[in-house]
C-alpha cells in the first residue's frame, strides 16, 4: 500500500472543506471494508485519505410513522441489524443485514460505505431500492437528493462526486397492503452473494390484484437493476404462483450479466429468475397478510 496523508474529519462541513481542498487526490474512507483491499492491491493509490467514519452526526436511525425512515450514511450494519425500530417496522432490512458479509464486517462497515462502493452484488442496494429509498448527498454546492435507483452508474461507480458525501438514506414507511422481501443466492455462507433479489408488492383491496411492484436484482449487471418487464407483466394482475412464475421468466430483459470465475452469465440469469419468483411470492404472502389485517413485517 502506498503511503498517504490521513485526515480525520471532525464534521461533515470539515470533511467537505478538506475534500474541496484536496480535490481528486483525496479519497473518503468510512468502514473501509472494501476500500482497504482496493488500496492494498494498488488499484487505487490516493495521496490523502479523509476518514469520515467517526462522524457521529451521520450515525443515526430515525423513524417517523408519517414520513418514514432515515438512516445516517455512517450507521454500521450491526446498528441497523440491532435497531429495534427497524426490526419491528421494516423487518426486511434486518433480515438482509443478518446475513450481510460476516459479523466482523457488519460491526465496522457502514451502510453508506456499502452503497458508495457500488459493488454490483451488494446485499444492501436492492432492498433499499425496493423500499423506494432516496440518497441524500451534500457537496460544496449544497445538498441534493437522488433516488437510490439512479444512484449507481456502473461497476464501482455512483453519482457521488469526489467533493461530495453521501449523508443519509431515507425511505417511506411501508404502505398498507404491501410486502417487501429479500433473498440472496450464494454457494458458501459468509460469502458475497452471487445474485440478490428484493421485491416490493402492493395489493389492491381485494388482497389479490397487484397495484404496484418493484423487483430489484443485484449481481446480474454492472449496477442493481429493476426487473421492469417482470413488474409490468404483473401490474393489475391477480397474483397466483403461476402468474409470478411466468412473469419471472422475463428477468433477462433487464439483466446483462457477465461470466466470471464463479459462474456463467446464463446461470446468473437462471438464479435471478428463481429469486425474483421467490421474493415476489414471499412479498405477496406478506402483503396478503397485511390486507387481512394481520401484523406484517
Amino acid at each position: 500500500m502506498k503511503d498517504f496523508e490521513y485526515i480525520r474529519a471532525r464534521s461533515v462541513d470539515h470533511a467537505l472543506e478538506v475534500l474541496a481542498e484536496k480535490g481528486e487526490s483525496a479519497v473518503k474512507i468510512a468502514g473501509g471494508q472494501s476500500l482497504l483491499n482496493i488500496l492494498k492491491q494498488g488499484l487505487m493509490a490516493p495521496d490523502c485519505l479523509v476518514d469520515i467514519k467517526g462522524l457521529e452526526e451521520l450515525d443515526f436511525i430515525e423513524s417517523n410513522p408519517g414520513t418514514g425512515f432515515r438512516i445516517g450514511a455512517l450507521t454500521t450494519h450491526a446498528s441497523i441489524l440491532d435497531s429495534e425500530v427497524l426490526q419491528s417496522s421494516c423487518g426486511v432490512l434486518a433480515s438482509m443485514e443478518r446475513h450481510l458479509a460476516t459479523v466482523q464486517v457488519r460491526n465496522w462497515g457502514t451502510i453508506g460505505g456499502n452503497l458508495c462502493m457500488a459493488d454490483p452484488s451488494s446485499d444492501a442496494a436492492p432492498v433499499l431500492i425496493a423500499l423506494g429509498s432516496t440518497a441524500h448527498i451534500r457537496g460544496p454546492e449544497g445538498a441534493r437528493e437522488v433516488p437510490l435507483g439512479e444512484f449507481f452508474l456502473g461497476y464501482y461507480e455512483t453519482v457521488v462526486q469526489p467533493g461530495e458525501l453521501l449523508t443519509e438514506i431515507s425511505f417511506p414507511a411501508i404502505p398498507p397492503a404491501t410486502g417487501v422481501s429479500y433473498e440472496k443466492f450464494r454457494n458458501v455462507e459468509g460469502d458475497a452473494p452471487i445474485v440478490v433479489s428484493s421485491a416490493f408488492v402492493s395489493l389492491e383491496k381485494d388482497g389479490r390484484t397487484l397495484s404496484d411492484a418493484r423487483v430489484v436484482l443485484g449481481g446480474v449487471a454492472s449496477t442493481p437493476v429493476r426487473a421492469t418487464a417482470v413488474e409490468d407483466a404483473l401490474k393489475g394482475v391477480k397474483l397466483t404462483p403461476a402468474a409470478v412464475e411466468s412473469a419471472s421468466g422475463l428477468v433477462a430483459e433487464s439483466t446483462s450479466p457477465i461470466p466470471d470465475v464463479v459462474c456463467s452469465a446464463e446461470y446468473r440469469n437462471k438464479i435471478a429468475r428463481v429469486l425474483a419468483k421467490r421474493t415476489l411470492l414471499s412479498a405477496f404472502e406478506e402483503a396478503k397478510a397485511a390486507v387481512g389485517g394481520k401484523k406484517h413485517r
Partner: peptide, 9 residues
Amino acid sequence: VDYKVMRAP
C-alpha cells in the same frame, strides 16, 4: 475472498 472454503454454517 474468491477461493471458497467451507464456513461454519
